[in-house]
């Protein structure tokens, strides 16, 4: 068993639109270790969202290979994909994507609902995670009654509840002010401390600088992939 949680080799992806074919990913090689915190940067159109979708098993790839926790992820049916997503991956989105008519606790508990965990049990677990996020007293509020930072914390709790191996965060701070952004990053770092790998897609240097490794994409290829030296410093500060 290798130590990599995500291993991508020579990944290609093109979108076919009528007679036009758009080659978005042109051979990506990437290896992310267990418990690593990595950011993926790149301008729009660099293919970072596509890569994230493939990593999240939300989309297929054309050529190459993708191993998630040493499982070869190939074309699979949606039921299977849903199971893998549920088991291995937690998603955090820019626009939070909470279900508007479910309260905080129910939103957090939702992944367990798909695992057919009983209502009482999953709500108890959801409360624990809300507690960790410091949102216990907000458990019965609807998303519309919460601030952006609170919503994102709920989204993180929802991503964590199924005990994933990887958290995929797509511009997690994109909709937040810098103060809340920092808070959310602190939480993500804490989560990372528990051994969960975190991949953050961002275009903000501030955010990327807080991760251990920064992967820069440009026109479908990896432009650079280097260890972020300022991270160690900062993590010392944090701890």
């Amino acid at each position: 068993m290798s130590n990599s949680i995500i291993r991508v080799e020579a990944l290609h992806k093109s979108y076919v639109n009528g007679s036009n074919s758009l080659h978005v990913l042109k051979g990506i090689d990437m290896d992310i270790q267990r418990g690593e915190m990595v950011s993926i940067m790149g301008s729009s159109g660099s293919g970072k969202s596509t890569l994230l979708n493939i990593l999240g098993i939300l989309d297929n790839y054309d050529a190459g290979s993708y191993h998630l926790d040493d499982i070869h992820i190939t074309k699979m049916n949606e039921t299977k994909a849903a199971q893998y997503r549920n088991k291995y991956i937690g998603f955090v989105f820019q626009s939070f994507n909470l279900i508007s008519f479910k309260n905080a606790m129910e939103n957090v508990a939702l992944p367990l609902y798909y695992q057919k965990v009983s209502r009482k049990k999953r709500n108890n677990v959801a409360m624990e995670y809300l507690e960790r996020m410091g949102l216990r007293e907000w458990a019965h509020h609807l998303p519309s009654e919460l601030s952006g930072g609170q919503k994102q914390r709920i989204a993180i709790a929802r991503a964590l509840i199924s005990k994933p191996k990887v958290i995929l965060a797509d511009e997690p701070t994109g909709a937040l002010d810098s103060q809340t952004s920092m808070e959310v990053m602190e939480i993500l770092k804490e989560v990372n401390q528990t051994g969960i790998a975190i991949i953050i897609v961002t275009h903000e240097n501030d955010i990327a600088n807080q991760t251990q490794r920064i992967i820069r994409l440009r026109d479908g290829v990896i432009e650079s992939n280097h260890i972020n030296h300022s991270f160690k410093l900062e993590s010392v500060e944090v701890n």
Partner: peptide, 16 residues
């Protein structure tokens, strides 16, 4: 559409 997409992303099966 969006809600269904979220549900799918966090593990809802098509049958669900």
């Amino acid at each position: 559409t969006k809600e269904i997409g979220i549900q799918r992303a966090i593990g809802a099966r098509p049958w669900t």
